[in-house]
Amino acid sequence: MRFLQSFTSALLLAAAGTAHAASAWGFDDGAVSVSKKASDGSSKAKLSQKEPLSTPVSLGSTDALKITLTAKDNGKAKRPHQAFLVLREQDSGLEAPFPLTVKENGKAVVNINQKEIPVQLLVSPKPLQASIVIGSFGSAQGLNTHVFDLETTTDPNAPPPSYEKPLRYGKRDEIYHIFRADPRSPPKIISLFFALAVTATVPALFIGWIALGANANHLTKALGSSPLSHSLFFGSIVAMEFVFFLYYTTWNLFQVLPVIGIVGVVTILSGTKALSEVQSRRLAGER
């Protein structure tokens, strides 16, 4: 009995296979309607499986989109296993399928509002491509046809839908460090002018001193009374300045300090002698 059953079903299947060879799926009575919640107007357009609608269908944020059609296998109304409305983003190729509810007699319907459309498609700047895909088991050829374009308009009062791309490993933007600007100097001519102005104070000072009667008349007297301490004292003052000059040009602090120590000791020892000679001249009333 069971054998017979399976045999007959196999036979039926085979018969169906031959009967539907080269048959194809299609649809009739296709219609798309958009009902608006705010104003109770609605728009409706007929769908054809041959060519897409010439004008895009517009779907507002509170509108409901309804698609009805009758699926047909070789002109005969029938229920297919697969009846999808597929929305496609044109640039990325992302797709969102919406299965149609199909009855035994092939009548199919689907309702879509904006909440059901993935946000990746909603943010698309181009209209979405809507296609109908009908297919089923057996040899009948499936139908995959572009039926209309869907434009979604968002509510201007509500925040626009935002979509953050998921993290993907890949190359990242280059970064070049921005260096701080180099320090700048004023124009050289100005620096030069002021440098000369400062240098000019030295001759001005000398001229002033000479005008007040500066002289070196006691030089021979001083050198005559204590030649060693005077020459060492004045020499150490000049030497100290020379050490500073060397510090500025080549030496480091550890080279400078011992030399300063030596020169300083010389200054103190010779200075006491030299300055007491100066004092003796002052006490003698020569200064």
């Binding site: 620096s191 240098t199 001083a222 003052i237 300045e241 100066v278």
Partner: peptide, 30 residues
């Protein structure tokens, strides 16, 4: 170049100081 006036200032001070030392020790009262 912006440091030139300052370097000139140090040079002037050093020259003035050494000259002053000599003047103070060896100048007879005019």
């Amino acid at each position: 170049s912006g440091a030139w006036p300052w370097i000139a200032g140090i040079g002037a001070t050093v020259t003035g100081w050494v000259a002053f030392c000599g003047l103070w020790m060896y100048s007879a009262s005019p």
